[in-house]
Structure formats: C-alpha cells, structure tokens
Design a protein around this nucleic acid. Structure first.
Length: 453
RNA sequence: GGGGUGGUAGUUAAGUCGGUUAUAACGCCGGCCUGUCACGCCGGAGGCCGCGGGUUCGAGUCCCGUCCACCCCGCCA
C-alpha cells in the first residue's frame, strides 16, 4: 500500500480508496480520549480556555469539541508566544496521570503553536457566565456563546432532541421526507405568510409542511419532517419566532387524535430518555425537566375551562386558552399526575384550519395541544381524509374548493384516515432546559425586528 | 398591533432631592507567586452616561423627540 495503514482501519481496496496522506490532523487526539494515550506523544488542537503563567509553570486549559484538559508547560516555551485566552492553538504533549490535576491526569507540553490569535478586548469569553452577558452581545459573537459550557450544552441538547425524534420515529416505520419551503399558497388560512419574489410572480415561504405531510401519508403511510417554517406574525414575545424549527409527523390509519397523542407520549418519553442518558438529569447547569410523559392526561377543552374556573377563578376564557391558562393547567396536571404536562383535546372547530376533523356534532375539533411545563409545544390532530368533507369544510369557510384543486386531487388516491402533529423544536428545547426565552434555544433567532446575524 | 421596563467602562449593574473628580464587580494590561483550574497579592488603564433638542447658574438625573433592547398581551409551535 502506498500510504501508511493505521490500525488496519481502511477496508477500501487501494485502487478505490481516497488518497490518504499522513497529516497531523489524522493523528489528532481529542481531549476526551487522552486516557488511552498516557505516555505517548499526542497532538491536541483547540482553544485556550484558561491561562495561568507563573515564573516556573504555565497552565493552559485547552478546550476542544470533546471537552477540556489541563496542559502544563515550561514558561520558556509559552511566554514568547504571548498566549491569551480564546487563542486557537495546536499542542504536542504527553498525557500522564497526575493526582494534583482536577481530572486526575494532565498533559506535559512538548510544543505549542498558535494557529490563530483571538482579538484583545472581546466582550466575553468561553469562561463567562452567560447570565452576565446580554442576549444581544451573545448574538453579536455567537460562536463564543457556543464555546461556553452553557451555550454549548443548549445546542448539543437541541441536536440530541432532534436526533431522538428521528430515531424514535424510524423505529416505528416512519420515513423522513423533505418538502419544499417555497410554496404557492398557505395551508392554514393565510394572512401570516411571507411573500417572496419568485421570478415574474409571487411565492411564499412555507408556514407548515402540512399538505406535503398528508401527501406523504398517501404514499408512504407514515412520514415525518424536521425543518424550518415561517410565520409572518408580528409577535414580540419570549416564545415566538418568525422562523422556527418544526418537528412534524403525520401517520395513516388512525382512529382518532388519541392515536397521535399516544404516539407523542411514547416518542417524547424516548427522546427525553436519550437526553437523560447522554447529558444526565438534571442536565448540569440547567433547571432541566425530562420526565416520562407516558401518563400525561388528556383533558377536554370544556373540562379545562371548568378546572380553571374552580381552581383559579378564571371566568374570562371562552374559546381559547391564554398563556396564563396554559401555566395554570400544567400546574393542575402536575398536582394530579406529578408531571407538568397535559393534552388539551377538542378545541372549538371554528378557529382551526379547514382540514381539521370535527369531534362529534358540537363544533369541537379532533385536535389537541400539548402543554409542557406551562407552554404549548405541540398542536396535532386528526385530519379530514375524504375529498367531499374537505370541499364542504372549505365552502363552509367561504373558500372555493377549486382554489385547492392541486391539493384535493391527492385525496382521490385512497387517502387513509390520518393525523399528525408538530412540535416547536426551540420551544421544546427551552422547556426541557428551563430557559426563559426561546431565543436562548435558537442559534440565529428571527423575530419582528431581527434578521441578523 | 397594544401596553410596560430599560439603555452609564469590554461585560453586568449602582448612581439619593438636579450640585464638586461618575461608582462596584467581573474582565483587560503590567508585576509577584512551583500546583493553578471562581486562585491569591500589588499596581494600572479604561466613560461624549444610546442619539438629537429643550429647561436650568448647573443635567447621567427633569421634559420632548428619536433609535435600540428586553418583558407582557393579542396570536401561535
């Protein structure tokens, strides 16, 4: 073989293998893996998170993607570089057990190289407490937010939640789909669409993959999609974004919304279990909440109003819940079940989208919300699956069915009774970690006034 | 869209009834320290008090305007 074989890892025949030159990168060791390299010379790469130089000893806490390690050096090797915190460096050293080090081991520095110096006078560092840095300053220097323990954990947990969502659905024969975010019209009724220029005509940013999910059901029976959706709603609250990441699923052959709710109990419980396993419970540094949701109750909308009346004297609610009611319902659920979560079933049909399946004849909908830790994180339900019913629902709202012909045609293909749901990923992340504002769980939040960074 | 709170050092904040040189903590810079990792000790730099106008002998402080941020509500995931 023309290139060095290392550990016999490559099984690709030589003629088809990519050229594999030996480079420092291929030998680079992550700080988390050092225990396997005691006594060897290793290459580490990362950032200077903490630096202390005395006359006789230099201590560098080096941070990389896997964690941190303390590097000990002769100041004669480090002083000439003028190192400072957040510099990007490359370190050659020998790891060894050391009782005086916090981790029980550290690295003796052999050589260090500055890859890129950090500027002086940065507004905060990877050691800053994020609570002491304003949200705007954090956004202006987003990668530094991620380099802190807290900021990094928020987005690692978010990634784990979404990975867990995918895995739980794949285990249940769901297929992931990827639908377009550029659409010709709305699904939910439409004043909250972002209009975009599309060559000689107008198009819109998708506010939901709802129609495409339903089409997916007609072909694949069980589908899910994760992706951004867009709402041109001029909100300015701690829980709204104009662009948010939606965890969407839709399944065929349901008998009612109860099937979808049960699926969500199972999926979220598995997702939370995954986060517990990977990060611990509580997640260190957070007021996290990762309960099993298997026993989450489902309360009828009217029942919720009744409970709010008797427990909190709420007489003001008629056809919807307000944020205070959501918090109160979760508190009531927690008192009864030990878990701060509740499904609210059977909202008034009138303010639901046209495709919503009615519940009985009393003007209620076969739809539900999941309130989790005081905040709505999901809306779901059963959808109409017969073309005639959809046409009637459209006419009932004063909409000419022909304007939805391209969509309605899919219901001529033998559409199963179906239902699904959507979870706001940033809200889920925020509620799981006990964050006060969805923006903390949003890498680059978009709201009424912000489109940068 | 409506309502509220706030903009003071790199960051987070204090600043009384309008009064002399605008504070603190952390961070930063220089020095000391052979086991530091929220180290410690000594010294230092750093400010058009968001911006514009007004009242006043005098404005960080009061008034008007403006920009920005955050919170609550409508609505939503």
């Amino acid at each position: 073989m023309p290139w060095p074989r290392r550990g016999g890892r490559s099984r690709i025949p030589p003629s088809r293998a990519p050229p594999r030159h030996r480079s420092p990168m291929t030998d680079r060791v992550f700080t988390a893996d050092l225990a396997a390299h005691f006594g060897q010379e290793v290459l580490l790469r990362g950032w200077v998170q903490r630096l202390r130089e005395t006359k006789s000893t230099t201590f560098i806490v080096l941070k990389d993607a896997s964690g941190t390690v303390q590097v000990v050096a002769d100041p004669q090797k480090t002083k000439p570089l003028g190192l400072k915190t957040e510099d990007c460096v490359e370190v050659v050293g020998r790891p060894r057990a050391e009782a005086r080090a916090r981790q029980g081991y550290e690295v003796d520095l052999v050589d260090v190289r500055l890859l890129a110096a950090a500027a002086e006078g940065l507004p905060f560092t990877s050691m800053s407490k994020l609570d002491d840095v304003g949200p705007e300053v954090q956004l202006d220097y987003r990668p530094m937010t991620l380099r802190t323990d807290r900021g990094g954990t928020v987005f690692r947990v978010q990634a784990a939640l979404i990975e867990g969502f995918r895995a739980a659905l794949r285990r249940r024969r769901f297929t992931e789909i990827f639908s377009s975010k550029i659409v010709g019209g709305g699904t939910e009724g439409g004043t909250n669409l972002f209009e975009i220029k599309y060559f000689e005509r107008s198009a819109y940013l998708a506010q939901s993959p709802q129609f495409y999910k339903e089409h997916g059901v007609a072909g694949l029976e069980r589908v899910f999609e994760t992706g951004h959706v867009y709402r041109a709603e001029p909100h300015a609250t701690s829980r709204h974004l104009t662009e948010y990441y939606s965890l969407d699923l839709e399944m065929g052959f349901v008998d009612g919304p109860e099937d979808v709710m049960q699926l969500e109990r199972e999926v979220l419980s598995e997702v939370f279990e995954e986060v517990r396993t990977r990060f611990g419970d509580p997640v260190p540094g957070f007021d996290s909440y990762l309960p099993s949701l298997m026993e989450v109750p489902a309360w009828e909308f009217g029942e919720c109003l009744e409970r709010l009346r008797s427990a909190h004297g709420r007489e003001d609610l008629v056809d919807d819940l307000d944020p205070e009611a959501e918090r109160q319902l979760c508190a009531l659920a927690e008192k009864e079940t030990g878990v701060s979560a509740v499904f609210v079933v059977g909202f008034p049909l009138a303010n639901r989208p046209f495709y919503t399946h009615p519940r009985g004849a009393a003007g209620a909908a076969q739809s539900f919300d999941l309130l989790f830790r005081g905040l709505e994180i999901t809306t779901g339900g059963q959808r109409l699956h017969r073309r005639a019913d959809l046409e009637e629902a459209l006419r009932g709202r004063g909409i000419e069915p022909s304007s939805f012909e391209a969509h309605l045609r899919m219901f001529d293909l033998g559409m199963p009774p179906h239902g699904g749901l959507a979870i706001g990923a940033e809200r889920l992340t925020g509620q799981v970690l006990g964050l006060k504002n969805v923006r903390e769980a949003t890498l680059y939040p978009r709201d009424r006034h912000r489109v940068e960074p």
